[in-house]
Design a protein around this nucleic acid. Structure first.
Lengths: 142, 142
DNA sequence: GAGTTGTCTTGATTCATTCAAGACAACTGC
DNA sequence: GCAGTTGTCTTGAATGAATCAAGACAACTC
């Protein structure tokens, strides 16, 4: 991932370029799913003066601009990921709450057309798969 | 829905029959999606001594027994519904947070087989559609 | 009808997140 | 390059949903 492009991507999205925003965006450029607290910890490694509230504000701004995606699996705090725009879905482990990406099941956005939309103007379909991850399956009963 | 069957359904599920449990189960026998607070308010109409913590405990017990289903749309508190076992999905309004049921898109459990399960042993697929509900669509810009 | 087990009530507490006020820095035009 | 304006960041407090804990109480068993 081209981390050097973070400032440009912020500018392109119409956002002011600040150190916390650049740091958060770069942090989320790596694959994975991080909650606000984890983003905060990582950002502080390179930018120790950053506050947790700043991270929340930045994450909201980035999510609003579509630069990061926010997911909220039941039972977990909100998670953020840098992978956007490809309508992928998520596997969540019911035991350790690990989250993994999974590509669209169908070639098309899956299930994007419910049989009866009940008058809703649908713009997003979100699919979450629940199960045991490989690690938790191999563990006896820890 | 046969509300009189609530005690029997509790017994069949191996749960002790108590007034709060019967009241909560009867409340959720009506169609709809209620958060814990709303269940609490309705239960208190017929059982004024019930505590909110009791409602939380009862909801957890009922959900654990499969008598009610718990959903947590992003941005909303947890919602509970009496409709279980038919793997239906949900439409959530991005404006007013109204939740509507939608039947399975495909005849089969939808998207239950992601192309690459990444080692997960999947047992549930959850689909949430996001959009504007009919009411919010018709409102100008309220 | 007494004993045991588990539920309910009351009260406090946790956690993630948001709100608010003021200090500060990024972009604009000069 | 420099001042002004706008919006962001820092610090601190507050909210809301949900959980934990201890003791009182009620449901099922025998």
């Amino acid at each position: 991932m081209d981390t050097a492009a973070a400032p440009e991507r912020l500018r392109a999205a119409g956002l002011k370029v600040t150190a916390p925003r650049t740091a958060v965006l770069e942090t989320l450029s790596s694959p994975g799913h991080l909650d606000a607290e984890s983003v905060y910890e990582r950002v502080r490694q390179t930018l120790p003066t950053t506050s947790l509230q700043a991270v929340y504000g930045v994450l909201a701004a980035l999510a609003g601009a579509g630069l990061v995606r926010r997911i909220e699996p039941a039972g977990s705090p909100a998670l953020y990921e840098g992978r956007t725009g490809d309508n992928h879905h998520h596997l969540v482990c019911t035991k350790c709450h690990t989250v993994a990406d999974v590509d669209c099941v169908v070639g098309e956005p899956p299930c994007l057309e419910p049989g009866d939309a009940r008058g809703f103007a649908i713009h997003t379909a979100e699919v979450t798969f629940w199960g045991l991850c490989a690690d938790c399956r191999s563990e006896p009963a820890a």
